[in-house]
Amino acid sequence: MPLARTTSKAAEARRQGHAAFLDAAERAVAEGESYSDVSIAGLATSAGFSRASFYAYFTDKRALAVAVAERFEQDLGERVDDWLDGDDIATVRPTIDGVAAVFGRHRGAVLLLAEAATYDPEIRERWKALHARFEQRIAAWIERATPGTPKATAKARAFALAWSTQAVLVEHLADRERVAPAIVDALAAQWEAGLTV
């Protein structure tokens, strides 16, 4: 039994260390530092580790950014996956409110990813893949909610909804910590129009 407990403690310590580096990266960017300027030494200090410890968790800053993206995607998916399986237009406003809350909670992550996607091809592909995952689900939602919608129309609307929502939320959060209710209302109206042909 002691071996199992030791292994479990080690796994938990590793999980906590990993999360501490992700939190440090998000925090640095949320506080106004550009991700390109964030140093590994600074991240390690903020996370409570030595610089050398960083490499026990990540090969480089790109790997850290990918892990930040994965955590953000998981949190966003938990908020919208069930909704995307349905077709209830009445739930659009609370869903968009929940999406805005996820973006606000991970403000540093979305600012980091939006920045890194402009100069790092791997992060750009990751960011596009995240959007594509939701675009496919949104297009299917449109087709279920409005039978007879041409696939090309549903796909185009899904693309516009996913990317415009991300752009609005990232720009809005660039200089504030939370998404204003008026922005949520505007996005919800956009979604309601876009989901029904």
Rank of each mutant, 00 (worst) to 15 (best):
V80G: 04
A101P: 01
R93K: 13
D85A: 13
D75I: 05
P94Q: 03
F72D: 07
F72Y: 14
T91R: 12
D81M: 04
V99I: 15
T95D: 00
I96E: 08
G98F: 06
D81L: 04
A90R: 15
F72A: 08
V80Y: 03
A101N: 08
I96C: 07
R93D: 05
G77C: 03
G77D: 02
D82G: 06
V68L: 11
G98D: 07
L76C: 07
Q74G: 12
D81R: 08
L76I: 04
G98P: 01
R79C: 11
A100T: 06
L84E: 05
V99C: 03
D97Q: 14
T95R: 06
F72M: 11
L76H: 14
V80K: 05
E73Y: 03
V92N: 04
R93L: 05
R79A: 15
F72H: 10
V80H: 02
E70D: 15
R79P: 01
R71H: 14
R71K: 15
A69F: 12
F72R: 10
E78Q: 13
P94Y: 05
D85R: 09
W83V: 04
P94K: 01
A101L: 06
V92Y: 05
T95I: 05
A69H: 14
R93S: 10
E70R: 15
L84M: 07
T95V: 12
T95A: 05
E73S: 15
